[in-house]
Design a protein around this nucleic acid. Structure first.
Lengths: 140, 140
DNA sequence: TTCTTATTGCAAGTCTATTGCAAATAACAT
DNA sequence: ATGTTATTTGCAATAGACTTGCAATAAGAA
């Protein structure tokens, strides 16, 4: 149950806790895969929750702004996915090319690489994408 | 001049070397930034080369299939870019969030990480995306 | 309960990329 | 050169992810 803390975050920025935001949050909470806006829309509809796709997009935007949700751009998908942050540390993913299953990777191996890049390029590095595809054990 | 070798590759798969393919290749050859389909389309139009955007997309698709071009999905751009392979080794990029400049990184630090992921997840890893954003020296 | 203002749903629009099909053209044989 | 054929092109239409404008709705405070 993360609702009370989230309500606080919403209120602190002049926002409101609504049915639809609750529904999106609850779905993200009980689903252990990163979800796309369309998937959230379709899943909620199957559960007879009335919500517009536009509202899903706007809700995800707000949750991202509040830092409650992380936006993912996985390898070769051409869409954005979202997962609850819930105190989890920064990590990456591997997606099965056959069945679409997404598995969390436990590490981010880029701390040293980032320092190296900053020295080599003189850039100040801000963010990165690191996502893998492959075949999961079942699909090999 | 990579035309002859490329013509050979095209012919080997029942394809033809055409004006438009030459134009796209020549542009990629003389531009030292990865280009998007739209950018290629607009640049060629400025140079009075008559080509349709659809043809640019189809050309890039063919060049990718032949392994002459690499498709890039940089961090937080929402479009695909292309660069000539030209014997270059697998590498990654950093893009400046302010001016859009894209700089090649000289390394891919993921060999060991890939092995580790395969052991941890039992996936067979196929491909990965690794792209950075930040501020370039001029824009800091 | 009333009031203010954030939020929602609907319609329409944007942007990247793809597909169908008839017309143009490259490559090859004559 | 000329004709033949299959590939390629341009145009129009379409797909799919995501965004915007606006009137109607609903959350939360008084």
């Amino acid at each position: 149950m993360l609702e009370p803390a989230i309500k606080k975050g919403l209120r602190a920025t002049g926002r409101r806790m609504t049915r639809t935001r609750q529904a999106v949050l609850a779905l993200l909470e009980r689903t252990h895969q990163p979800l796309s806006a369309t998937e959230i829309f379709e899943q909620l509809h199957q559960e007879k929750v009335s919500i517009d796709l536009v509202t899903v997009y706007r809700t995800l935007h707000v949750l991202k702004e509040l830092g409650l949700v992380v936006q993912l751009d996985l390898h070769q998908e051409g869409l954005l996915r979202y997962e609850l942050k819930e105190g989890r540390t920064h990590h990456h993913h591997i997606r099965c090319q056959v069945c679409g299953r997404i598995v969390d990777l436990l590490l981010c191996p880029l701390k040293k690489v980032t320092k190296l890049i900053e020295r080599q390029t003189q850039f100040i590095v801000d963010e990165h994408t690191l996502e893998f595809t492959g075949l999961c054990p079942e699909c090999q």
